[in-house]
Design a protein around this nucleic acid. Structure first.
Length: 746
DNA sequence: GAGTTTGAAACT
DNA sequence: CAGTTTCAAACTC
């Protein structure tokens, strides 16, 4: 996919300029932040979003420039503050995870895969740091995401990252969380990323740059020191860059950390790393880096490499290892690989597994989402509303997630797609099960959890459609049928991937939005519950409207009702009594005066109301577990928490969808199986467009989700980019996730 | 669990 | 585009 976005290019260009500029060093420090700031959205970020913005900035392609920046930075920094201890490394990994995740998100998908798969570190001694992205991210997000914080600040990942080092220097003892919070707080203080950098740079650069071997050693010593996560991060950041230089591969870590724009750096670095599989490549990468970083000194680079190389490298390795370990822990098979050289690991695992995962297919997008959730953790779920932040965060996580996918690939043998329908969170996880199976313990946990949760999930019962038509909920949701399904002659299985894809293409050719969510829901929708429970948010409507004749739109036969949305003008229903909103605009049931209606709906009203509240809560309150579940994405129709299946009402979170897309991209271009994003963007459904446009209510989700147009533009978030437009973004996001386009195979 | 109802999806 | 058929979920008993 095209990760590159115009924004990126701009950023890269700016970066290059900076490099050239006399203020070169200064710029270097600033540059990372700048990209972030450049993104207007960053400010808009609510508590949660920060990670995404950076990712946006960091485009894989851009990475080259960024790398150069980093190198320069590091070089000038010369002073090394070896703070990170081995223990710290682990901690760092947590903090680093965030950075990594961000950096990885974009291009790093491969890297992540590698890491996830358990890329072996060159240094056998390398400590394995677990990538527990979730916790850290959650911390960051939570802290930043907290309402109290200025969204903008939080939004700037780069800033946060930068800040971290400073604080770390200030308080090593402080807990990582504390640092995060502090950072969040601090960010608000200094709006200018540059300022942060300035403050940070000194520490970071010092830390990072090890001009002399002695410094490197010193660094090692630091490594041993117990540092706070925050500190560690900073250290790591600094370290990583160096290591990357040496290894070539590790560059990305540094970049991501150092530069606010994780993506750019990350991309670059990652590519090398992934490609780095071969030593030659790595060297080339290194050379490139050197060139980029500082025209002046390859030697300097070499020195840095040689000096810092050891310590730094370990850090980098640690990160990778951490990922690897995770995988390994889960999958013993990988253990060997972990020890093996990176080269070996990358190529084989990445290519084989990754592709494989992609191939697996349809379910991938779902799985990816699930994985994202897992990584991002609860936050995402909480975010449910689908604010950009979340989405972005998800994307960022995506990188991390990618590994998950890879994991899945590793394990994968099975898989199937789980019914997207299940939209309920559990279902989401289930979707991720494939990934999860192989994935880290967390994933497993969730998976384990999901089953019970997912039970509510739908399982198709197709008998004649072979699960290759939209009649099949699983198929419609873009997921493979799984055991729970009672379908007969099912072709919606990984084994028949080709058939599934072809069929999907066919259907998509007929109706590009066939796999798009049927219900478009905007988080901004008017507060149904609080303000007027009876009203359904105008923003949330069924894509095409229902055509109910006998159900009065009071039963799940009605897709509008099923989706927890009111009927709209587009509906051709008769005798509409939709509790969520009538076609004619009359007040929902509660308002209804008609005794009959009341009677009929009476039963469901209470539930509906509760459902609505739930829905709103989910949307409005990210915290709600139900909020953003992959399932939702997958499933066009949002299952309301209705009695029958107990499906949670589906509120599509743009973020999710975006994430899904993103994940799919990362997972593999290959995976284009679901190249929905293109479809949506290129051929948005008229109805959808209308709906979106129609939404008067501002889409909070979108806003939040896409703090910055840039972000959106970010490669990972191509979808998101469009989102900048109110209507467009929501649609895009939602649509994307829900229906992975089969077309993919580009 | 079987049978009925319902409306979307698919087909003509 | 409209009408009909097919289909599987939703619902009822």
């Amino acid at each position: 996919m095209d990760m590159d976005t115009p924004e990126r290019n701009q950023i890269s260009a700016t970066l290059t300029k900076f490099e050239d500029s006399p203020v070169f060093n200064y710029i270097n420090s600033l540059s990372p932040i700048k990209p972030v700031k450049s993104v207007p959205i960053s400010q808009t970020f609510n508590s949660l979003s920060f990670s995404s913005p950076p990712s946006v900035f960091t485009s894989p392609h851009v990475s080259c420039l960024k790398e150069s920046r980093f190198l320069r930075r590091h070089i000038p920094l010369g002073t090394s503050k070896p703070k990170v201890s081995s223990e710290d490394a682990s901690k760092v990994h947590t903090t680093s995870e965030e950075t990594l995740t961000d950096s990885t998100r974009h291009n790093s998908s491969e890297l992540q895969e590698n890491t996830d798969k358990g890329i072996s570190v060159e240094d056998a001694s390398i400590e394995h740091i677990k990538f527990s992205v979730e916790p850290q991210q959650t911390l960051k997000y939570s802290s930043c995401g907290s309402p109290g914080y200025d969204p903008p600040l939080c939004g700037d990942e780069g800033n946060t990252l930068l800040e971290l080092p400073d604080e770390a220097a200030a308080d090593e003892t402080d807990s990582s969380e504390g640092h995060l919070q502090k950072m969040c707080q601090m960010e608000p203080k200094s709006e200018d990323p540059e300022c942060y950098w300035d403050s940070l740079v000194p520490d970071g650069p010092d830390m990072l740059i090890f001009n002399s071997p002695g410094e490197a050693e010193a660094f090692k010593g630091l490594m041993h020191k117990p540092l706070d996560s925050s500190i560690r991060l900073s250290d790591v950041m600094s370290v990583l860059p160096i290591s990357t230089i040496h290894n070539g591969r590790k560059m990305y870590f540094v970049d991501s950390v150092a530069s606010g724009s994780e993506h750019e750096i990350g991309d670059h670095c990652f590519e090398p790393t992934t490609t780095a599989m071969d030593t030659d490549q790595t060297q080339d990468n290194l050379a490139d880096v050197v060139l980029v970083t500082s025209n002046s000194n390859e030697n300097a680079n070499d020195q840095l490499v040689s000096v810092t190389h050891r310590a730094i490298r370990r850090r980098c390795l640690d990160f990778e290892m951490a990922n690897v370990q995770r995988k390994n822990s889960e999958d013993n098979s990988n253990a060997g690989s972990s020890t093996s050289n990176e080269k070996q690991l990358h190529p084989a695992k990445l290519n084989g597994n990754f592709q494989r995962g992609i191939l697996q297919g349809i379910g991938l997008h779902l799985n990816a989402l699930a994985a994202l959730k897992e990584y991002k953790g609860i936050q995402i779920e909480n975010l449910s509303s689908g604010t950009l932040q979340i989405s972005t965060s998800i994307e960022h996580q995506h990188l991390s997630l990618v590994p998950v996918s890879s994991e899945r690939e590793l394990d994968s043998s099975d898989n199937g797609l789980q019914p997207a329908e299940d939209c309920s969170q559990p279902s989401v996880y289930m979707a991720g099960e494939d990934f999860n199976k192989n994935s880290s313990p967390r994933k497993k946990k969730r998976k384990v959890e999901t089953p019970g949760e997912t039970e509510g999930c739908k399982r198709c019962n197709c008998k004649k459609s072979k699960c290759l038509k939209l009649y099949c909920e699983c198929f419609a949701a873009g997921v493979y049928c799984i055991e729970p399904c009672s379908c007969q002659d099912c072709f919606n299985k990984p084994i028949h991937e080709d058939t599934v894809l072809q069929t999907r293409k066919q259907i998509e050719s007929r109706n590009p939005l066939a796999f798009a969510p049927k219900v478009i829901r905007s988080s901004d929708s008017v507060p149904e519950i609080g303000d007027d429970p009876n009203k359904t948010p105008a923003s949330a409507r069924h894509k095409r409207g229902c055509n109910c004749k006998k159900s009065s739109c009071l039963k799940k036969y009605c897709e509008c009702y099923q989706g927890g949305v009111g009927c709209s003008i587009s509906c051709r229903c008769e005798g509409c009594k939709n509790a969520f909103g009538r076609k004619d605009g009359s007040a929902p049931v509660g308002i209804e005066t008609d005794s009959e209606e009341i009677e009929a709906t009476e039963k469901g009203v209470a539930e509906r109301a509760s459902h609505k509240t739930e829905i709103q809560n989910t949307e409005d309150h990210p915290d709600s577990a139900t909020v953003s579940t992959p399932l939702r994405f997958s499933r066009p129709l949002l299952p309301l928490p209705f009695s029958s299946k107990g499906k949670a009402p589906i509120s599509f979170v743009t973020t999710i969808s975006g994430s899904a897309l993103f994940s799919s991209q990362k997972l593999g271009k290959p995976n284009s199986l679901w190249s929905q994003s293109k479809h949506f963007q290129t051929a948005p459904d008229e109805e959808m467009a209308d709906i979106l446009l129609g939404d008067t209510s501002p889409i909070t989700c979108i806003k939040t989700s896409s703090p910055n147009g840039k972000r959106i533009s970010s490669p990972s978030c191509d979808l998101g980019s469009s989102p900048s437009r109110r209507g467009g973004r929501k649609l895009i996001l939602q649509s994307i996730p829900s229906f992975p386009s089969l077309t993919p195979h580009p």
